[in-house]
Nucleic acid binder design. Structure first.
Length: 394
DNA sequence: TCTGGGGTCCTAGGACCC
DNA sequence: TCTGGGGTCCTAGGACCC
């Protein structure tokens, strides 16, 4: 049996904002943007949650529920900074740390009792360390599997610790709603409800064969989860970090739906630059470029093209994405969202002819120079030509 | 209520190859 | 000639997570 910690920062974005502006403390705060903007709540303070505000809710709805809330823009770089501080604390506590997202992590503390004491005491120690060094609250779940520890940290919120002793996993999970199982969202919940399955315990009592019949592979996984096993079986419990991302993308929702081709293509150019830049930062080359379009009726399509050779060049990404756009956009349809997605990463760039190779090299140099300029003078200082063709607003 | 942006993983069908 | 079976790659869409 291993000892797995799940650490989850409490109301992370809001808490970081409070460190920047202590006057926010205790007040209803909504992070996500201005209430008249298109967008959703990224995080809500506990005071705002009392009014029914929660993450993923449209900002306009949040405003109706709680007009006195303080609405704040999302400051990603701030949260990344604090996420790195959180990570430092965790790294000092244990050599096996896997960040699961910007505000949560798994730690493997198997066999660490001589250093940190028994699991619950160890969790207390970490909890205190975290508060002292980052001034942020977190909740910690402790058990023998990632799944149970994650559910436990959620149950421990806010600012709590919950240890599930070996053998108690199923009993802990049984009274909880199926929705509490990570991976069970709105759709699966409804499907399970239609079979009269509401609690994790209902799931645990069912025959695995039945679940497999109804839900296929997913049904088998669910059966395992209901007993507290990690999805992929015992080996899934080992923590290991996949260093590199599997895809890099950017998307943008317009303030107002638009049919202006030049505007749409200049935004597309800008996003391709951002994608290219991040590919270069990670030293990655992508083979597949995918375009995403959402029209005013919220209908969403994706169209992909796989290149012969992998690239990290803004121009190649843009030309591919623009071709996909031109081939798939009907001028009558107003565009709500446009996005670029790259994947199929290769360690190396594709083979190029000698001529293309030289052209490529010149581009590489130009782009890394541009990246440096952006670092120094900001995002707007350098841009693909088409990015500047944007018409002045009327 | 009028619905973001960044990701991961899964499924399913078709092309193509052996 | 009237129809296989496995594997891989690609595309499109969707559920889900934070």
């Amino acid at each position: 049996m291993r000892t797995i910690f799940h650490i989850d920062m409490d109301a992370f974005f809001v808490s970081v904002e409070e460190l920047y502006d202590p006057s926010l403390k205790g007040k209803p705060v909504v992070v996500g943007g201005r209430p008249d903007q298109r967008g959703v709540v990224s995080a809500a303070s506990y005071a705002a949650r009392k009014f029914g505000v929660h993450s993923a809710m449209p900002l306009r709805t949040a405003y109706k529920l709680c007009p006195q809330a303080i609405f704040i823009d999302v400051h990603r770089t701030r949260y990344s900074e604090y996420s790195a501080r959180v990570r430092e604390v965790l790294d000092r506590f244990s050599p096996i740390v896997e960040m699961a997202s910007i505000d949560e992590a798994y730690l493997d503390l198997t066999g660490s009792s001589r250093l940190h004491g028994p699991p619950f005491a160890a969790a207390h120690k970490l909890h205190q360390m975290m508060k002292q060094e980052t001034r942020l609250n977190c909740s910690i779940g402790v058990s023998g599997s990632r799944l149970v520890s994650k559910v436990a940290s959620d149950q421990a919120k806010p600012n709590g610790i919950l240890w599930i002793a070996p053998g108690q996993e199923a009993a802990f999970l049984a009274p909880l709603d199926v929705r509490k199982i990570p991976g069970v969202g709105k759709v699966s919940e409804q499907q399970l409800h239609s079979f009269g399955i509401r609690k994790v315990g209902d799931l645990a009592r069912l025959d695995e064969k039945f679940l497999e019949q109804k839900f296929g592979k997913w049904g088998l996984a669910l059966a395992g989860k209901s007993h507290g096993f990690d999805a992929g079986g015992w080996f899934d419990t080992f923590l290991g970090v996949s260093e590199q991302p599997k895809s890099i993308s950017h998307e943008h929702t317009f303030d107002e739906d638009t049919r202006e081709k030049d505007l749409i293509e200049s935004v597309l150019a800008h996003m391709c630059e951002k994608v290219g830049r991040r590919l270069r930062e990670h030293g990655l080359h992508a083979r597949t470029v995918q375009l995403k379009l959402r029209t005013s009726d919220f209908a969403t399509i994706t169209r992909a093209y796989t290149l012969d050779g992998a690239t990290q060049l803004d121009t190649v990404i843009f030309e591919t994405a623009r071709a996909l756009f031109r081939a798939n956009w009907k001028r009558t349809a107003a565009i709500r969202l446009i996005g670029v997605h790259t994947s199929g990463f290769d360690a190396n760039e594709g083979q190029l002819s000698l001529l293309d190779g030289e052209k490529n090299e010149r581009w590489q140099k130009a782009l890394s120079a541009a990246d440096k300029l952006r670092d120094k003078y900001g995002e707007a200082s350098v841009s693909l030509a088409v990015g500047m063709q944007r018409k002045p607003p009327r």
